[in-house]
Computed example of a mutant assay.
Amino acid sequence: MSIEIRLENITKTFKAKNETIYALKNINLNIPAGKTISILGPSGCGKTTLLKVIAGLEKPDEGKIFFNSEDVSELSPYERRIGMVFQNYALYPHYKARGNLAFPFWIKKVPEKEIDEKIRETAKILGVGFEYLLDKKPKELSGGEQQRVAIGRCIIRNPSVMLFDEPLSNLDAKLRVITRAQLKKLLVTFNVTSVYVTHDQTEAISIGDLIGIMNNGEIIQVGTYEEIVNNPKNSFVASFFGKPSMNLLEVKVINSQIMWRDKTIPLDKKIEDGEYLLGFHGKDVEINPNGEIKGEIYFIDGTPADISKVLHVQLEDNSSIKIEIKSGEIYRCGEKIAFSLPKKIYLFKKNSGERIL
């Protein structure tokens, strides 16, 4: 049976030079049974600490952790039946892959016949070619093969919850794509509740059923890719998440009108005067020679094989934006273009980042 994970008011602090640093701030999170949530955020935002707290490797200063209705806050990682896959694989170098899978059962003196059966079942789950790896030591395996063994060692114990700490970051680009696909297939087949920590948006989107955006020890927003991109909670989420992320321009609001350089945009609702960030998606921008905003393309992100490409455009006031185009459209670096602001716009307070519109 899959486990629902619930975190209630989790806070974790560390002391540094007589200063209290918040690694996690009052986190409340609900992960549905059988789902995978990708935790995404910049370095140092608390992603790995959150994972360790769920695993029981770190104890929070405040708050509780529930697996279904059971409070596991005081239980050890073993008692929580956690399976964890690390960035550096953490395999025993003197054992072959078979030994790495069998080790936790050797400790408990499980009969060899039963261990062999568990290894056969695990090899079947992990697919073609895994049995070939079983008689090799870690030093004889590629990075991708080592990670498959690490995942096998995790699932052979039939964990209630699987936790992944940037497991693919040590692999080259091609292996990351291959291993990512294998891992997603495994999670769908295994139907185990999982938390996947990464700083790579492509991984987060590909692996997670849900995505949690973290910053400064807080989970800012949780949702699907579409929910977060189309309805970002604040300017940090808008500027951080998305492929490409939202464009943000510094503007002023006076008498419920947006003022940007010499442009005026009337608003349909009453908004307090002040400094704001005007947001819009690059996919909503239409390039046309009669557009009132002008700029120059300085970089094109994409290859001829991509369905779409992203133009990086420097505007006349030296700010830059990103415009998404279809693959058939031809533009070149150094080319000058013009466009109009799209109808769908967002507005955030400049200082707090709070979304207003």
Rank of each mutant, 00 (worst) to 15 (best):
K64N: 12
K64S: 12
F66A: 12
N68D: 15
E70W: 00
D71M: 02
S73V: 04
E74M: 09
P77D: 01
P77A: 01
Y78E: 14
E79C: 04
R80L: 06
R81L: 03
R81Y: 02
V85P: 14
F86E: 05
Q87H: 13
Y89K: 03
Y89S: 08
A90Q: 14
A90F: 10
Y92S: 14
Y92V: 11
H94K: 01
Y95R: 15
Y95S: 11
R98P: 04
G99W: 05
N100P: 03
L101Y: 03
A102L: 05
A102R: 10
K109N: 12
P111N: 05
P111Q: 01
E112Q: 08
K113Q: 09
K113F: 04
D116R: 04
E117T: 02
K118C: 04
K118F: 03
I119V: 00
I119A: 00
R120E: 13
T122P: 05
A123F: 06
L126Y: 08
G127C: 08
G129F: 04
E131H: 12
E131A: 06
L133M: 01
L133P: 00
P138W: 06
P138C: 09
K139I: 15
K139E: 14
G143F: 00
G144N: 11
Q146N: 13
Q146I: 12
Q147R: 15
Q147I: 13
Q147W: 04
V149L: 15
A150K: 13
I151H: 13
I151S: 13
G152P: 06
R153Q: 13
C154D: 05
I155R: 03
I155V: 11
R157S: 10
R157V: 05
N158R: 09
P159M: 02
S160T: 06
S160E: 10
M162G: 00
L163A: 06
L163K: 09
F164I: 14
F164A: 11
F164H: 15
D165S: 05
E166H: 06
P167G: 04
L168F: 08
S169N: 11
S169W: 15
S169P: 11
L171K: 10
L171E: 09
L175M: 15
L175P: 12
V177F: 05
I178T: 15
T179Y: 11
T179L: 15
